[in-house]
């Protein structure tokens, strides 16, 4: 499992990418999906996920719809139009960052 610092910096990108590939998702679903895809290597904590989701929603990057599951309410998140381009932008930025890091760390091994 990766350190929380690493996850924190990439959480937005992860969430946006998940939503780009799965039309709409709820919080728990996102954490499970990421966990499965990464073979438990990335475990998103609830304490980090929900503040990020709320903040992205306030930014207009995510749109929400709610559904009742019995007595409880489930909030589904999906990308807004702005969110779709933001998602691509974030993923590209991170890919570029990874290349830079790769280059940086390879020529200067610790």
């Amino acid at each position: 499992m990766y350190s929380s610092e690493l996850i924190k910096g990439t959480l937005k990108t992860i969430v946006l990418k998940m939503l780009a590939e799965n039309k709409r998702m709820y919080g728990y679903e996102i954490t499970q999906k990421v966990k499965d895809l990464t073979g438990n290597k990335i475990q998103i904590t609830e304490g980090a996920l929900y503040p990020t989701l709320h903040s992205l929603e306030a930014d207009g990057i995510l749109i929400t719809e709610t559904e009742y599951i019995g007595k409880r309410v489930r909030k589904y998140y999906s990308l807004s139009k702005e969110g779709q381009s933001k998602s691509k932008e974030k993923v590209n930025e991170f890919a570029d960052f990874m290349n830079t890091m790769k280059f940086l760390l390879e020529i200067k091994p610790a």
Binding site: Y26, L53, H54, I69, R72, V73, R74
Partner: peptide
């Protein structure tokens, strides 16, 4: 309230 509902659903799911 929004956060309460999110947490509630999440806990229930787990």
């Amino acid at each position: 309230e929004d956060l309460q509902n999110n947490l509630l659903d999440h806990i229930c799911c787990i």
